[in-house]
């Protein structure tokens, strides 16, 4: 395991405004995930786990501290690069090439079949005029991934024709198609029965062990968290120190 932090959250706050009320979800979170590390974030519902994952994955911006109160080393850092200093394009590129998301509810595009869902991030990554040239090798990679996940017989099926476990495996394949540095998994087994959930966890552990895949996993299930290299507890928007 490499000691360089792949992603680092330093004193991250996140507040939501709902009507006149302000809900302070993340209250100065500090966390780092090193290259090749499997970190599980545990916490009860509403503790801010998903928000933390979205902030870490550049899907959501943390609060910008009031002028004059910000410290230069606060914020989210990817390989020591501050996300808030990156251009919009660089952040899209980060989500596309360096991060891979796996959601609790799979979130596959219902109009696309299995192969198309998996290949979509590769299409997003390809510049417009290169898309045709790059289509064939990316399709080959997608087929290999789907075969590895035991889905080669489901290539042309649409998401609504798949079981929950199959959908989640497709979602993982989609997250891996651009060989991301960090896999961000939000309750990946939360919507599955125990057996299917275990098979998904097996896939993740296998990825971590064989490919050295860095994973940041959010769960409220201690059995799932126990499989990680390190567990971080989140309670009421703060990291709970043991």
């Amino acid at each position: 395991m490499n000691n360089t932090p792949l992603i680092q959250l330093r004193n991250v706050h996140r507040t939501y405004k709902i009507g006149p009320d302000e809900i302070h979800v993340l209250k100065g979170v500090n966390i780092a995930v090193r290259e090749g590390e499997f970190v599980a974030i545990m916490g009860a519902s509403g503790s801010g786990k998903s928000t933390l994952l979205h902030v870490a994955g550049a899907l959501e911006d943390p609060d910008y501290p009031p002028a004059g109160t910000a410290r230069p080393d606060d914020g989210v850092f990817f390989r020591d690069q501050a996300l808030h200093r990156m251009s919009l394009f660089a952040r899209h590129d980060l989500r596309n090439r360096h991060f891979g998301f796996v959601f609790q509810f799979y979130h596959l595009l219902p109009e696309l079949n299995v192969l198309e869902n998996v290949i979509l991030p590769a299409m997003v990554a390809a510049p417009f005029f290169m898309a045709f040239l790059r289509a064939r090798p990316r399709k080959k990679e997608a087929l290999e991934l789907l075969e590895a996940f035991g889905l080669s017989h489901r290539l042309t099926h649409r998401p609504n024709q798949l079981s929950g476990g199959e959908r989640q495996r497709v979602a993982i394949a989609r997250a891996l198609i651009n060989s991301p540095d960090l896999l961000l998994a939000d309750e990946p087994t939360g919507n599955l029965d125990a057996k299917t959930g275990q098979s998904i966890l097996d896939v993740l552990i296998n990825l971590h062990k064989t490919r050295g895949q860095s994973i940041l996993l959010v769960t409220h299930d201690p059995h799932v968290a126990a499989l990680a290299d390190r567990i971080v507890h989140l309670e009421d928007g703060r990291i709970k120190t043991p």
């Binding site: 899907l59 919009l88 989500r95 596959l108 979509l120």
Partner: peptide, 16 residues
């Protein structure tokens, strides 16, 4: 709405 969120999550830009 959800599809749009997914596309953004896999790197799709606002312009895209």
């Amino acid at each position: 709405t959800r599809d749009i969120g997914i596309i953004k999550a896999i790197g799709g830009s606002e312009l895209g």
